[in-house]
Design a protein around this nucleic acid. Structure first.
Length: 976
RNA sequence: GGGCGGAUAGCUCAGCUGGUUAGAGCAUUGCGCUUACAUCGCAAAGGUCGCAGGUUCGACUCCUGCUUCGCCCACCA
């Protein structure tokens, strides 16, 4: 079998993926012998195509999933997609528009058919793309938020909350998107600053008045006639809303306008008399101190109106054109056109005092970015405070932990100040409200929001004719009429997503509730004990888990991985839903990662054209390269700034792994070695060194992954593999490629592959299979199901054939991290570096020269034994061991060395010595100052002082040796 | 208006609970096709750790203020 010298991910990835599917590697089922570990995927929108954010998010999850799977947990990664109500409807509407059609033209039923057709055709695109990334989800379970079971769960929840009095219907001011023509929740309205103007508009008084000035300064500032006043000035950023004004408000403390009530105010153009109200909410400092009040189109005004019992006039249609409640000239005009027209008229009438440029913070629809219009309308809401209570507690008490921790505070702040959630949407794609109306009972109730609403409150206390049940009833329970119709609205997408961690398991229909409660407590205990030091995957206490249902077995899930953007949308609400419906937290850890940005720090988005397409990266460099580079860049929740070249690191590393394996396997073949066990004997110094390094790496990488510090795990394994294993061990071993060596090589390589597997699943699997094919070792079927490396003696590592378990002569102690055992090798490696340096200084970098060394004891033996590769790596002709050297070029506490060269160029050598001396002298000074300081000696910890003293010794010696060398050469140089 | 995060080599970032000769990758500069890998090897250069105070025997690490970039929340019309 030929192994090409360059790794070709394209050939490998698809093949490997098929293998995994064939071997059922992704599937998880209840297994009483194992502890569960589960993650639910943040379901991507069916409109989504894989972008870098997904790649990042899902790679993190897959790394944890694969790691835990190898650790022996029964691992479930639950996949699925979100119907994404508004987003999907928009996409299909656009499609229709291409044919010149509106959804109304084809009607609700046909439109929904089109939506389902669209979903069937494109809705699984992103799932296929996730597979390319290597995501090891249990694809059999792929859920969709509009699956039949799932939809039933959504309805159950709605009905349940309604019955508890936590879902209610009412006329309130909500965020209205005039383009999507639906209500939105507060979270779906993103506040952004836009440039606008603050207009100062004169509202005439009913009767002129001549008040006694309180303060001439203030009077001047609002610029009215000193004697008689016949208008007041209000400031507004949205002049068109004045057509819906029903009052003006002042602060009761404001002495400037005490007379206003008496004078009366007339709304210009409309010529309606406005009420004058007093309220603390009015800011004396802002504008003129007089506020126009538009109850139906402004949140503050809305609450003022409720408090002061004002009239609500909704002046807008659902597309933000003005309706018939405004003067005829304005009817049908778009809100911004109306604004211009109105300003023009006001200008003509001399009613505009001034306008100032002003930054307006306006809500924008998070789906189409249209400016939100606050608007009173009849909607359904969820009362959040009661739900928040327990969700706050579990986070406050760290039952659910955020990482990085700072998000805990963000979460709690939001939760403490939570507002009711508007959940009805005036679109067609989604879960239609399980609400039925009796036409007979309702009659006047269902007045459209277009009409005047007397009072925004207008609670339906009796709810007569409103039937909230999961399935359509036969007749009205009140009057027995069969003339029933369902509420047209659908639920907010997030009203289904918040059930994701348990509805995906078939809740509430597949749950054995009695068992559930008991087991939940059980599991909770376990998780508590386990979570901080998750280690081996032992079966639950008592060795059996009485899980009749998957929900009981896999819920609560272990960790939720997400970006901060959906903390409120989704994470917070899942916690509330979990507590409310399961009585238990949905996940124990929340891992919040950063946002993917471009090189300038701007969030990647298609509209800005600054995206780097992960699929393109996969195509060019491979999925492993993409994954590795992303994981290397992601650090504890910080944003990642990406450029295409950053993926080269991953690509190059893939190639390095490939070639290390290639070399090993070619050598085995070349030397005709038959490897049927890993029963390696006679470990020499260098073997012990690499095994020690390996053990240490295993320890560190495992710990990092346990703590979800993926990037540090990435760095450690990278450093070990490339700079220890490839740069040194493989290079050294080239000379003497024996069966025994090849066993060590395979052992180290395989363990490295295992550690790398969560990060780079494809190449590690491919190489794992290659090793199997090139040797006679009996190994696991797939690396995916092999066991995670343990920091231990090789014989104790499971996953190897039984032959690997017996007869290994190595004392376990020898492989422990033991400084003395490998110090000789470490010094030797360091010395080789010194020789290389000296040769460069002397200008003979590539020349093969003779080396003389003066060594003693174990070092001498070590050098003698290892001569061949020392010569090769340091590029030496011969090594001579002598009692005394003619000349010394390098000195350490362990020995001296000299290179035999004629006419050496001493200048560089000397200056490099000087430099070293200078650098060390600076440190030396620092340390001696410290040691002279009485306070330091008295107050610092004794062991710190001791360390400093040792350091002092070492550095003095180093300086002494270097100085001696320097002087010797300087003398010689001077004599010349 | 509140809150949060970042500011360390030219670039992107590590640096845990205060004591390090402050690290890595990329880029740069030399040298090198040495028995896998030029998607490579060997080496070099490059940092008064944003600024100013403070605490401390000692601060890149802790505290305060400032500068600057970026996020999130908020009913200043």
């Amino acid at each position: 079998m030929d192994i090409p010298s360059q790794y070709n991910p394209k050939e490998v990835e698809e093949k490997i993926h098929q293998l995994w599917l064939k071997w059922d590697c992704f599937n998880a089922d209840i297994n009483p012998q194992k502890k569960p570990f589960s993650i639910v995927i943040p379901p991507p929108n069916i409109t989504g195509i894989l972008h870098m954010g997904h790649a990042l998010n899902n790679t993190i999850q897959d790394v944890l999933i694969r790691f835990k799977r190898m650790q022996g947990f029964e691992v479930l990664w639950m996949p699925g997609t979100d119907h994404a109500g508004i987003a999907t409807q928009n996409v299909v509407e656009k499609d229709l528009a291409k044919h010149g059609l509106k959804k109304e033209d084809i009607g609700r039923d046909d439109f929904l058919k089109k939506l389902w057709a669209w979903r069937d055709e494109y809705g699984l695109t992103i799932i296929e793309q996730l597979k390319k990334l290597g995501a090891s989800c249990d694809w059999r379970r792929t859920r969709f938020t509009m699956d039949e079971d799932y939809s039933r769960a959504v309805k159950e929840v709605f009905v349940n909350l309604y019955e508890k009095g936590l879902v209610y219907r009412g006329n309130y001011i909500i965020n209205w998107c005039p383009r999507c023509k639906t209500a939105l929740s507060d979270e779906e309205s993103a506040h952004k600053e836009i440039d606008g103007f603050l207009y100062y508009i004169k509202y005439p008084l009913k009767k002129s008045i001549a008040p006694i000035p309180q303060s001439s300064e203030k009077l001047n500032s609002i610029n009215y006639q000193p004697s008689t006043i016949n208008y007041i000035v209000v400031a507004t950023t949205r002049p068109e809303t004045m057509l819906g004004d029903t009052a003006v408000a002042i602060n009761p403390k404001d002495s400037r306008y005490k007379w206003l009530k008496e004078a009366g105010v007339i709304l210009p153009i409309v010529e309606r008399e406005l009420k004058v109200i007093e309220d603390e909410a009015v800011d004396l400092e802002f504008g003129t101190g007089v506020v126009k009040v538009t109850p139906a189109h402004d949140p503050i005004d809305f609450s003022l109106a409720k408090k002061h019992n004002l009239e609500f006039i909704n002046i807008m249609n659902d597309d933000a054109t003005l309706n018939e409640f405004v003067p005829p000239d304005f009817v049908g005009l778009d809100r911004f056109k109306a604004r211009d027209a109105l300003l023009e008229i006001l200008e003509e009438k001399g009613l505009i005092e001034k306008k100032e440029p002003y930054k307006i913070s306006a809500g924008h629809c998070y789906r189409c970015h249209t400016i939100i219009e606050p608007r009173v309308s009849l909607q359904w809401f969820v009362k959040m405070k009661p739900l928040a209570k327990r969700a706050i507690k579990v986070v406050e008490e760290d039952e659910i932990k955020f990482s990085p921790v700072r998000w805990k505070k963000v979460y709690l702040n939001w939760m403490h100040d939570i507002h009711d959630w508007c959940i009805s949407r005036q679109i067609w794609w989604g879960h239609q409200l399980p609400v039925y109306y009796c036409r007979k009972c309702q009659e006047a109730e269902m007045q459209n929001a277009k009409c005047k609403i007397q009072n925004g409150e207008e609670k339906q206390k009796k709810n007569k004719g409103i039937i909230v049940v999961p399935e359509k009833p036969d007749k009205c329970p009140d009057c027995g009429s069969t003339d029933l119709y369902q509420d047209e609205d659908v639920l907010d997408t997030w009203f289904s997503s918040w059930l994701w961690p348990f509805a995906t398991f078939g809740w509430p229909f597949k749950q054995h509730s009695a068992v559930s409660i008991q087991l939940s407590a059980d599991r909770k205990e376990e998780l508590k004990a386990d979570s901080r030091a998750r280690s081996e995957a032992k079966p639950p206490r008592g060795g059996k888990l009485k899980a009749e249902s998957e929900l009981n077995y896999f819920y609560p899930t272990n960790v939720l991985v997400t970006a901060s953007e959906i903390l409120f949308f989704w994470v917070a609400r899942m916690i509330m839903a979990g507590m409310e419906f399961m009585g238990e937290i949905p996940f124990r850890d929340v891992l919040i990662h950063g946002t993917v940005r471009d090189s300038k720090g701007i969030k990647m988005s298609k509209s800005l054209g600054n995206i780097i397409d992960p699929l393109e990266i996969i195509d060019k460099f491979g999925a492993d390269a993409l994954r590795f580079s992303l994981m290397q860049l992601v650090s504890s929740g910080a944003d990642a700034y990406l450029t295409e070249e950053k993926f080269l690191v991953g690509r190059n590393f893939s190639n390095k792994i490939w070639n290390a394996a290639r070399f090993l396997l070619l050598k085995i073949k070349e030397n005709n070695l038959k490897i049927d066990n890993l029963d390696f004997k006679e470990l020499d110094e260098i073997d012990k060194w690499i095994l020690k390094e390996l053990n240490q790496t295993i320890e560190e990488v495992t710990l990092s992954l346990e703590n979800c510090h993926i990037n540090s795990a990435t760095k450690k394994i990278y450093d070990f593999f490339w700079h220890k294993f490839c740069d040194w061990y493989i290079e050294i071993v080239k000379d003497k490629f024996t069966a025994n060596k090849s066993k060590v090589l395979i052992y180290v390589l395989t363990n490295s592959l295992k550690m790398l597997h969560p990060l780079m699943p494809f190449i590690t699997e491919e190489v794992f299979q290659l090793i199997k094919n090139h040797t006679s070792l009996s190994q696991d079927e797939t690396i995916m199901k092999s066991s995670w490396p343990a920091k231990t003696h090789p014989s104790k590592v499971s996953g190897w054939s039984t032959c690997a378990r017996k007869g290994i002569q190595v004392d376990r102690c020898e492989l422990e991290i033991n400084k003395e055992k490998t110090e000789g090798i470490e010094t030797l490696l360091d010395t080789i570096g010194q020789i290389r340096n000296i040769k460069i200084d002397l200008g003979i970098a590539t020349k093969k020269v003779k080396l003389e060394v003066k060594l003693k004891g174990p070092d001498l033996d070590l050098w003698k034994v290892n001569q061949p590769w020392i010569k090769r790596l340091a590029r030496l002709e011969t090594i001579e061991f002598r009692e005394d050297l003619e000349r010394v070029l390098y000195k350490s506490e362990r020995g001296e060395l000299n290179l035999i060269v004629e006419d050496i160029e001493i200048k560089n050598f000397l200056s490099s010595l000087e430099k070293k001396i200078k650098k060390l002298t600076v440190v030396f000074e620092k340390i001696s100052q410290r040691l002279k300081n009485k306070d330091f000696l008295g107050k610092a910890r004794p062991d710190t002082v001791e360390e400093e003293k040792i350091k002092f010794e070492q550095i003095s010696n180093q300086i002494r040796r270097l100085t001696e060398l320097r002087n010797a050469f300087k003398d010689a140089d001077d004599r010349k």
